[in-house]
Amino acid sequence: MLAIENVSRTFSNGETGFKHINLSVNEGEVIGILGTSGCGKSTLLRVLSGLDHHYEGHVKIDGVAVKAVHEKVGMIFQEPRLMPWLKVIENISFGLEEKDAKAVHYLESVGLTGFDNHYPKDLSGGMAQRVAIARALVTNPEILLLDEPFSALDAFTKMQLQDLLLEIWQKYHSTILLVTHDIDETLYLCDRIIILRGQPGEIYEELKINACKPRARGDLELAKMKEQILHLLDLTHVDIK
């Protein structure tokens, strides 16, 4: 579905975001990209989305190399990024050529029925992010890229939206790439976890989670894995000077 071949990104000031990333993603797979800040994981997602095309290497979708924004790719940002002058329903249909019933369908599927005519200023953070999810889904993307989508939300809203994402995955069989720094989130949602480390970031480890979804948030196996990931990220021992 999506293949990343030896992709590196060097910024114009000589700094490197990440280097030599190789990854192939199967259809319907949920991949978590985990790493501490500064390892280039958001940059990687921008490269994959086509927003950033100053990279070396190849990004292939269905075997064809792409260097621009691809219609099969949908992106959800850390902030909702709604157009404040558009109503909820207009925001959802923002990427469509013309208004159609699809917008209403996705409004319902993110649980915002009845909020069609509200403006973004009247929405809570969680509701705004739901609208952003619906807006990304409305063009039927096969690959969904999520850049720390729930990191600005409170713990409960976050869990609700993680469940929503899971529902979407079950319903539309999307391929999902999720960049995050929340280990529990990756353990709850992902089939595979890619751990990036270093500056520039490189793939340090790849973990597979075989447990079926939906998973219990308090699962013992997952807790063990969390410990392992903390080790891999070099976060288990705390130095207090």
């Binding site: 989305s49 086509g50 927003l51 924004v69 219609e71 949908g74 940002f77 990024r81 157009m83 923002f94």
Partner: peptide, 23 residues
């Protein structure tokens, strides 16, 4: 950040101006 949303949908310059920049 708003302009990037338009870019994700492959908007042309004219469409970016009309649908995002002017409003």
């Amino acid at each position: 950040k708003l302009i990037e949303v338009g870019k994700i949908y492959n908007f042309s310059s004219l469409k970016l101006i009309k649908r995002i920049i002017l409003p």
